[in-house]
């Protein structure tokens, strides 16, 4: 019997909580939202507490927060059209605003570090995807990719290969690869009939699952002959009654979805398709905007101003 047990409800944010992300190097959770702040949460003496609040970087909603692979930096995508970089200073044990990346014309919707930490990607309502080269404390724009015809909602790096994926309001997912000194779009994946809000890879990266405003999930499998080519093998419909805002494929194989019907659902792979293993109705008192796995822990962010931490039991 697969189920989720509620470990903690974290209050402190004011307004919608849009994003949660686990540190890759410790059991610290970062969250961000409408109140323009980033909060770091950790378990102390058995209970989860907010250990740090980062403010004064972004001046509007912080749509997404992302840990760097080394665990010493945070990138934040904001409606104020900038991406902020926060760095941990070991000497003072504080987080400092290290850089503010400008360039997008309006709201930045998502930001993601490549697995080796050499690149940072950001995307915006201005329809563009930017790739930034990370050189110590310097961030240089390596490419501006204008391939989507609408608002770009999410950027995600492939877990093992230097490939960048983006999901958009134009209903497509696109993949980019390095090309000389620049980056280029290698493939465009169509199938969803409305905005693609997010996507998540399995551990090896030979499959990813995408989630959409069209209330479906799609499972995409890698072509054996072409690394950038994925084909939709199944469409998972009939489970969600409102838009699906996020999807996270855990390393244990369970796929969690965050939806506008206040629920969290867990799926597992069955052949090319997905099987619903658990439905957590009323997981929050509002839309669930984001889900993130760390081992058997699942964090969720919601419009109800809270973050919740769940334990997976199988």
């Amino acid at each position: 019997m697969v189920k989720l047990t509620l470990e903690a409800t974290l209050s402190g944010h004011k307004g919608q909580v849009w994003s949660v992300d686990w540190s890759p190097t410790s059991k610290t959770l970062a969250s961000s939202g409408q109140d323009k702040s980033i909060k770091l949460w950790r378990q102390e003496g058995g209970s989860w507490v907010c250990v740090t609040t980062l403010e004064g970087g972004n001046t509007r909603t912080v749509r997404q927060v992302a840990w760097s692979p080394c665990g010493n930096k945070l990138a934040t995508a904001s409606f104020d059209s900038t991406t902020c970089i926060w760095e941990y200073d070991r000497n003072t044990s504080t987080w400092d605003l290290a850089a503010t990346l400008e360039g997008h014309e309006n709201e930045v919707k998502s930001v993601a570090w490549s697995g080796d930490g050499d690149y940072l990607a950001s995307c915006s309502r201005d329809k563009s995807v930017w790739v930034w080269e990370v050189m110590d404390d310097d961030y240089e724009c390596a490419s501006v990719l204008q391939v989507h015809s609408q608002d770009v909602k999410k950027v995600v790096w492939h877990p093992t290969d230097p490939l960048l994926f983006s999901a958009s309001y134009d209903d497509t997912v696109k993949v980019y690869k390095e090309f000389g000194d620049d980056w280029e779009c290698a493939e465009s994946f169509t199938g969803h009939s409305s905005t693609v809000w997010g996507l998540s890879f399995n551990k090896s990266g030979d499959k990813f699952v995408s989630c959409s405003d069209d209330r479906t999930l799609r499972v995409w499998c890698r072509d054996e002959n072409k690394a950038t080519k994925y084909t939709c093998k199944s469409t998972v419909c009939g489970f969600h009654s409102r838009p699906i805002y996020d999807v996270s494929w855990g390393r244990h194989g369970y796929i969690a979805t965050a939806a506008g019907d206040n629920a969290i659902r867990l799926f597992e792979q069955q052949g090319a398709s997905l099987l619903l293993s658990h439905l957590q109705s009323d997981a929050h008192f509002g839309d669930v905007n984001c889900v993130s796995w760390k081992g058997n822990l699942l964090a969720s962010a919601s419009d109800d101003e809270t973050v919740r931490i769940w334990t997976l039991e199988t």
């Binding site: 409408q34 409606f79 309006n106 709201e107 309502r125 905005t195």
Partner: peptide, 15 residues
Amino acid sequence: NKQLGDKERVAAALE
């Protein structure tokens, strides 16, 4: 309809 149904676009518009 798509724009009004996009909660993120609505939230950004109100800022």
